[in-house]
């Protein structure tokens, strides 16, 4: 076996072990359970949509998928490495011939894999309900799920990053939620920047450029609309750059962490 193959196998091994760990994680299982229940409930509230009951099922379902996958990525992402440090199970992993960054990347991929599986499960259920109600196939549905996956990848990398420089999982969860909220108000920040004086404007400009713009990734808003002026490729590169950047910073922190 070549060295590269051995190293890739180590990353894969850590990912699969993280996946297995998450399948036994109560937060993960409860989030999926409530996600599924909430999607099913959307059938009962479609009457609120008046002449567009499908729109209610569509929006409610997609929001539910996003909300519960966000819960999973923030809770599990903020806790998984801290838990291994506190439980000291990390010792017996890091004393093996494995680079620290392989471990971190493996954990990250395992986390994403777990959340993506739950997204797939909830989406399949949601699609079944939509088709039963007579919904016509729209490729934007799949694009919106794809970009939700990208959003989840950014938030996951943020959760890991915050969990590495804070000693408490609560603070890393709060930081991650805070960035998630700010990321949805980037356009408002840009608007505010024009109205403010020099010093606050300077700080707001820094925030504007650091915070990932999650509104780019809200493709569920465009389902059924013909006016889409975003470039898919541009958003993809923009988002992946954020993931790589936060993951790189996490690796830097983790390389110098003592246990």
């Amino acid at each position: 076996m070549t060295q590269l193959k051995i190293e890739m196998n180590q990353i894969l091994l850590i990912s699969l072990y993280t996946l297995k760990e998450n399948f036994r994680n109560r937060t993960y299982l409860v989030s999926i359970f409530f996600g599924v229940i909430t999607i099913i409930i959307s059938i009962l509230i479609d009457v609120l949509g008046g002449e567009q009951p499908l729109r209610i099922i569509l929006d409610f379902g997609l929001s539910t998928i996003e909300f519960f996958s966000l819960l999973m990525i923030v809770f599990i992402g903020s806790n998984m490495i801290l838990e291994e440090i506190n439980n000291k199970t990390i010792y017996l992993i890091l004393v093996r011939p494995i680079s620290r960054w392989y471990y971190l990347v493996g954990k990250y991929l395992g986390l994403l894999l777990s959340v993506y599986l739950s997204i797939i499960l909830m989406s399949i259920l949601h699609l079944i309900l939509l088709f039963l109600k007579g919904w016509k196939f729209d490729i934007l549905y799949f694009i919106s799920i794809f970009f939700l996956g990208i959003k989840i990848a950014i938030i996951g990398s943020l959760a890991i990053f915050f969990s590495l420089f804070s000693t408490s999982n609560i603070s890393s969860m709060i930081f991650t939620f805070f960035i998630w909220i700010l990321g949805h108000f980037v356009m408002e920040i840009k608007f505010l920047m024009k109205k403010l004086s020099l010093v606050p404007k300077f700080f707001l400009t820094i925030v504007y450029y650091i915070i990932p713009n999650f509104t780019f990734l809200n493709w569920r808003d465009y389902i059924g609309s013909a006016n889409i002026d975003f470039s898919v490729l541009y958003i993809f590169i923009y988002s992946v750059s954020y993931c790589i950047c936060f993951l790189f910073l996490s690796i830097l922190l983790f390389q110098h962490k003592e246990f």
Binding site: K20, N87, K88, Y91, V95
Partner: peptide, 12 residues
């Protein structure tokens, strides 16, 4: 390496 108190993933 054998630690003072060996901790393992309890679900395995």
């Amino acid at each position: 390496y054998f630690p003072e108190i060996p901790y393992f993933q309890r679900f395995l």
